[in-house]
């Protein structure tokens, strides 16, 4: 390497030594390392909903951490019923629910974990 390249390498790695750990720290400072579950599950709901007759509107305020979130009906006995659809990101979603539906489950389809349970 010529002298200029040696200097450039040095300054780049000083930059990586200073900036990267700061960003790494900021990225993980709020994570809960005691639980293996998604951070969505431990915090408050990132979704809000409104029910009008058989029409269920779900508003996703912040992106869900799970990559494939499926919405299921909750039967009166609390069991999981029909699949209503998928939440793919921030936005407004509308689903038609069966009469007598008690609430919904939002599931992580990949990990097969329950993310949220919402009762009407």
């Amino acid at each position: 390497m010529i002298a200029g390249q040696r200097k450039a390498h040095k300054y780049i790695w000083i930059g990586i030594a200073v900036v990267l750990p700061l960003l790494m720290f900021l990225a993980i400072k709020d994570l809960d390392f005691t639980s293996a579950r998604t951070s969505d599950a431990s915090g408050e709901l990132p979704v809000s909903f409104s029910l009008s007759g058989q029409s269920l509107k779900i508003q996703v305020d912040t992106p869900l951490k799970s990559t494939a979130s499926l919405v299921y009906e909750m039967y009166t006995d609390g069991s999981r019923g029909n699949i209503l659809g998928q939440l793919e990101g921030r936005g407004s979603y509308e689903f038609l629910i069966s009469p007598g539906t008690k609430g919904i489950y939002i599931m992580d389809a990949i990990k097969k974990e329950e993310l949220f349970k919402i009762e009407f």
């Binding site: 990225a27 993980i28 994570l31 809960d32 390392f33 639980s35 293996a36 998604t38 951070s39 951490k65 799970s66 990559t67």
Partner: peptide, 8 residues
């Protein structure tokens, strides 16, 4: 990955 699966 670390936001979705926290692992020390």
């Amino acid at each position: 990955a670390f936001q979705q699966e926290t692992s020390v």
